[in-house]
Design a protein around this nucleic acid. Structure first.
Length: 674
DNA sequence: TCGAAAGACTTTTTT
DNA sequence: AGTCTTTCGA
């Protein structure tokens, strides 16, 4: 215990020991916030006698949750963390819903729709044949925004007023929700919103959960949306057991409803709130930290804070320019090769960071040419592979036969002579009778709509599914699932439908990964009580790829990642590429005049670096196949010149650009002198 | 109903 | 440039 606290600085220690009232920890980048949270959990258990099952820590990503769990385990003795809940907001929401199915208006095995499913459903519901993709996206976003702001369809309709587009979206919102419920399904946003509704409607249920969670810790608080904050408030009630940790400078998720204002709002909602700032940075060299501070000083702030570091000044920040995106990649890769050779570093110490996923492609190519091992993060989620979605759709249907989306997805995969035309007819019939496609297949009425052959194939399929659901009850469900994959001949189907043998093999592997993950999940559960339904829902909100990360993390590979995905991580040597106007800041953000979030994104990237930081840009870039002239990012000119080292000579600026560049510097000097 | 080939569209970030 | 979609012919 002593050792536990001795490893902390005084501010961190205050944060850990503060129990009496709600606490807000404003933790700058690299100031040891995860350490504070994990130590606090250990402290609550060991020193305050709070049982682990009464403590819940909430994070935003499964990765962060996992990391936190591991670190707590290391601090505590064997078995001392039994019952401790460290989860994402979404899986906490799911647990709440599962504990109160009936009152939440759900049935066992409810499906979780991801964006793809949701989008497909909304598309179905949109009137008119001509569907404008932009409009669809707008509506999907609008609905998500409403759910994130805890705005019910009725309110949305009222708010829409005379705005025709909003009105249409609000109407669809209501319709979409009705259909979700009919499918016994919820979407991602519902996982937060429905628990809030549940608590509001049933104080008794709320009380149960308040008993269950006596101390709540929330990580990355600046990323919470309104609905999530409401959930936090409902869980806390009048009790004071709350610690939230956040950093308004690292708020980069406003576009999906995050409200960094929630940090300031805490002060109003909890008048007894204590605020502790963590400003000592343990990560980056002085030079990097100073530059990052200067950059972020250009943003407006509610909470002032200045990071400082006891680490040495370190190397200057390198700026590399290149005539084209291709050469940019070449220069960066060769810079890594040289550095790695000269200083005997591991490849795993380097990270290449960028704004958009597509930027990785060219770097992949160059790294492969040089035979440098790399790890590409993000891009494709494991669950977005068609083969994974297919098998998952089978599982969803086994668990929840009302899930029409799952039904449509796999009814003819592999081929069962039940093509689009047949399903179309079935769907029309089901709609008229207000029942699911699955249920419709058993009705006598379908025999009028479909021909004999179609009916036979259809019933063959649905009967088979029924038999399987029955078997799952009686036998080891993972075994049944494995057999099912064999029976449908899925591997052969993949072989036929892949472009190359290699691709087919990869896809078969993915399916096997999915199955072995199911198996592991089943075994991990103590008394083997996990039903298939539980496993499917768990799986849908957890990304398997994150599980494999562990192996990948320990492998010695250069990391390629988006600036969003890199939050929370650190690397000895960081390369930020594509430091150009229209890219960082992104052109859409420039249009929306949302430069501050882009600046924070840049700040997050810079503060990942421990020893060296290299920024690069190209003056010509390929976009949609054509060459575009680009300009260096304004953020480069916001950095203090004395912290930068231009590797290639500064590109010739046009006269007006040079004046602009100089003016920016003068402005900065002036503000510094004030 | 299915496959090949032309054509359209893409790039913001993700639980 | 690369990927996903639509179209046309069998």
């Amino acid at each position: 215990m002593k050792a536990l606290l001795n490893n902390l600085n005084s501010r961190q220690r205050d944060a850990v020991k503060h129990i009496g009232s709600p606490l807000l920890v404003l933790a700058g980048a690299g100031s040891g916030k995860t350490r504070v949270i994990t130590c606090k959990i250990a402290y609550l258990i060991q020193k305050c006698g709070i049982k682990p099952q009464h403590i819940t820590a909430v994070t935003f990503t499964n990765k962060a949750a996992k990391e936190m769990k591991n670190r707590v385990q290391k601090l505590l003795g064997q078995g001392e963390n039994r019952g401790l809940r460290v989860s994402t907001f979404h899986s906490l929401g799911m647990d709440i819903l599962r504990s109160e199915l009936t009152r939440a208006n759900l049935k066992t095995g409810f499906s979780i729709f991801d964006q793809h499913d949701s989008k497909a459903l909304i598309k179905e519901l949109m009137p008119g044949k001509m569907i404008d993709e932009d409009e669809l996206n707008r509506i999907v976003q609008a609905i998500s925004r409403w759910k994130n702001n805890f705005c019910l369809p009725e309110e949305a309709l009222l708010q829409a007023g005379n705005d025709e587009q909003e009105h249409i979206a609000a109407k669809l919102y209501a319709l979409y929700n009705t259909h979700l419920r009919a499918y016994n399904a919820v979407d991602f946003d519902d996982l937060i919103m429905l628990p809030v509704m549940l608590f509001k409607d049933h104080p008794a249920v709320q009380a149960v959960w308040q008993q269950r969670i006596r101390y709540l810790l929330v990580d990355e608080y600046q990323d919470t949306n309104s609905t999530q904050y409401q959930l936090v408030k409902l869980l806390i009630g009048v009790r004071q057991g709350l610690t939230v940790v956040g950093d308004d400078d690292q708020s980069i998720y406003c576009w999906r409803g995050a409200q960094p204002e929630n940090l300031a709002l805490l002060k109003e909602d909890f008048p007894q709130l204590t605020v502790i700032k963590l400003e000592q940075n343990y990560r980056s060299s002085g030079c990097i930290l100073k530059a990052a501070n200067t950059l972020i000083a250009n943003n407006s702030h509610v909470f002032k804070k200045t990071l400082w570091s006891q680490l040495g000044y370190g190397d200057l920040i390198k700026v590399i320019s290149a005539p084209s995106d291709e050469q940019e990649a070449e220069r960066i890769v060769s810079s890594i090769v040289h550095h790695q050779f000269r200083y005997r570093c591991k490849y795993g110490e380097y990270a290449i960071l960028y704004r958009g996923n597509h930027q990785a492609r060219i770097f992949e190519k160059k790294l492969r040419e040089q035979q440098i091992p790399y790890y590409l993060s993000g891009g494709m989620s494991f669950f977005s592979y068609t083969e994974v979605k297919d098998i998952l759709a089978y599982l969803r249907l086994l668990v929840n036969q009302e899930d029409d989306n799952a039904f449509i997805r796999i009814v003819n995969v592999p081929r069962r002579e039940l093509g689009a035309a047949t399903i179309e007819k079935l769907a029309r019939y089901a709609k008229q009778r207000h029942i699911s496609l699955f249920a419709a297949s058993f009705e006598l009425g379908v025999e009028q709509v479909l021909n004999t052959r179609q009916v036979t194939s259809l019933r063959q399929f649905t009967d088979w599914i029924i038999r399987l659901t029955d078997e799952i009850q009686r036998r080891d469900c993972v075994e049944v699932v494995k057999e099912m994959v064999d029976v449908i001949g899925y591997a052969a189907w993949l072989q036929e439908n892949s472009k190359s043998d290699y691709a087919a093999q990869k896809r078969v592997e993915n399916v096997q990964d999915l199955l072995s993950w199911l198996e592991r999940m089943q075994k991990a559960e103590e008394n083997n009580t996990l039903s298939l339904a539980d496993m499917v829902s768990k799986m849908l909100i957890m990304d398997i790829i994150e599980r494999n990360n562990e192996e990948q993390n320990s492998a010695d590979q250069v990391v390629l990642m988006t600036l969003h995905a890199v939050k929370g991580l650190e690397f000895p040597h960081v390369y930020m590429i594509g430091m150009e106007e229209e890219l960082l800041p992104h052109r859409n953000s420039i249009e929306e005049e949302n430069i501050e979030e882009e600046r924070r994104l840049c700040y997050v990237g810079m503060t990942r670096a421990q020893k060296t930081l290299t920024l690069s840009y190209a003056s010509k870039r390929r976009r949609y196949g054509e060459h575009i002239e680009t300009a260096p990012s304004r953020f480069l000119s916001e950095l203090p010149a004395e912290n930068l080292e231009w590797i290639n000579k500064k590109p010739q600026l046009k006269e007006e650009e040079r004046i602009e560049f100089g003016r920016a510097h003068l402005d900065k000097l002036r503000t510094l002198l004030q």
